[in-house]
């Protein structure tokens, strides 16, 4: 159980029996599809709604219900939404070429939400597009993870991970001497040119992981 979860349970436990409190929380998390390890924007609101259903069910007195919910709301605001502010990480599947468009749009929206500049949005979306295309073309299937970095200046981290064949002759690909029919060399080098940090791990038959970070300048 994560720390915010136990704090929530604690607050619910002050108004409900231990068993009811646990049940309200567990059901709430499941119904709201909230993972406290990886809080997402909007989680707090959805979780509160689900917890409200539980509390109204288990607590008879209307005033007691409201008191309990006020406490829960306050807690969610500081704990869950506060954490989102610091780090929200989303993991998106990349299986088809449509996913390339979906994933890069998600990256753009994420940057938009945080208030990153339009030029930064395009830069990030383009890098995501390159990495996602590499997954689709060479590994077939994989994931792209997007996370905001609460650094100074703030930034965004993109992780592209697949269990594909790996990239043979990585050094040649990155040096620009290699030209694939599909243009992978250009994609990886272009991505490296776009971002501030670029790390790549690849092993034959085991897959590839590319981690890039871009910071708002």
């Amino acid at each position: 159980m994560t720390q915010p979860e136990s704090v929530l349970l604690d607050v619910l436990g002050r108004h409900l029996s231990a068993v009811s409190a646990r049940s309200v929380l567990t059901m709430g998390l499941a119904r709201a599809h909230v993972d406290m390890q990886r809080p997402q924007p909007g989680d707090g609101r959805r979780l509160l709604h689900q917890i409200e259903r539980g509390v109204r069910l288990y607590l008879a007195d209307r005033e007691a219900q409201d008191r309990c919910l006020r406490n829960v709301a306050h807690l969610l605001e500081s704990h869950v939404e506060g954490q989102v502010e610091q780090q929200s990480r989303v993991s998106l599947p990349v299986n088809t070429e449509w996913d390339i468009v979906t994933v890069r749009s998600a990256g753009r929206s994420l940057c938009q939400q945080i208030g990153f500049s339009a030029s930064f949005q395009v830069k990030v979306a383009t890098a995501i597009s390159e990495l996602a295309r590499n997954i689709v073309q060479y590994a077939g299937t994989g994931v792209i993870e997007l996370a905001t970095l609460a650094t100074n200046p703030p930034g965004i981290e993109i992780v592209a991970r697949d269990r594909g064949p790996g990239i043979p002759h990585l050094a040649t690909v990155l040096s620009g001497e290699y030209r694939s029919r599909t243009g992978m060399g250009m994609g990886l080098r272009g991505t490296r040119n776009l971002v501030d940090q670029f790390e790549i791990k690849t092993a034959a038959g085991q897959g590839t992981e590319v981690v890039v970070r871009a910071f708002l300048t």
Partner: peptide
């Protein structure tokens, strides 16, 4: 077009 990556421009 809001985005042109290496594949599109190529």
């Amino acid at each position: 077009v809001d985005l042109m990556d290496s594949y599109i421009s190529r």
